[in-house]
Write a protein that binds this DNA or RNA. Structure first.
Length: 199
DNA sequence: GTACAGATTGAG
DNA sequence: TCAATCTGTACT
């Protein structure tokens, strides 16, 4: 089994395609105190500004908070909601295009060489966007981090193949205000995976 | 300067 | 079903 780090070319593709390809196939590796925190991506949501009313970049809006959404694919866009939960997004597409993917849920993976450590570190089940960031111990210090260059966080292809029939597409969550955009089936998750977020 | 809403969560 | 909790944004 080969572990291949995802490079720029993976992220600089149509956002919906990247959102689906991220599913299940890839692992987030997070170095923390010389240990690794790992999880398999099982749920994603695509945000495609400036057209998408649910996007923070709707109408081409640029703020100090959302500017990472405009970076070339492969950068981290992280922000706080409800004053207490971080949301991990990955920018996609070209520089200047505000497109990103919200990572909503992970399946925790116990790595073979540090089984005990990982289990102790991660009592949190990353089955929701806020909990996922607590699991990975992410915060604002990761804002704008380049996943293709960072030494502390990146994604890997570990050779897991996902069939089309295993991917379920539904409406996105928590964006009912976005009118017709709220109806788009831009949320993707793995069929029968128990770590997919509820509600 | 102040007011207010939000890509959520877990407890009731 | 509800409230915790804080930052960016849109006002005065």
């Amino acid at each position: 089994m080969t572990f291949k780090k995802l490079e720029r070319s993976f992220y600089v593709r149509p956002t919906l395609k990247v959102a689906k390809n991220l599913l299940g196939k890839f692992i987030i590796i997070r170095k923390w105190k010389s240990k690794k925190i790992i999880g398999k991506i099982v749920e994603t949501e695509a945000y495609i500004g400036p057209e998408d009313k649910a996007s923070h970049a709707y109408g081409g809006k640029v703020t100090k908070r959302n500017r990472a959404e405009y970076l070339i694919g492969g950068h981290i866009y992280i922000y706080l909601v409800y004053g207490m939960y971080w949301q991990l997004n990955i920018s996609t597409g070209f520089e200047g295009r505000p497109e990103c993917i919200l990572i909503r849920a992970l399946e925790p993976i116990v790595s073979s060489n540090s089984k005990r450590t990982v289990l102790v570190l991660n009592k949190i089940i990353p089955n929701g966007p806020g909990k996922l960031c607590r699991y990975l111990k992410l915060d604002k210090s990761f804002y704008g981090e380049d996943l293709t260059k960072s030494k502390r966080i990146w994604l890997e292809d570990r050779g897991i193949k996902i069939k089309k029939s295993e991917i379920i597409a539904t409406k996105r969550i928590g964006i009912d205000y976005a009118e017709e955009w709220a109806k788009k089936s831009w949320r993707f998750y793995l069929k029968n995976n128990s770590f997919v977020s509820k509600r």
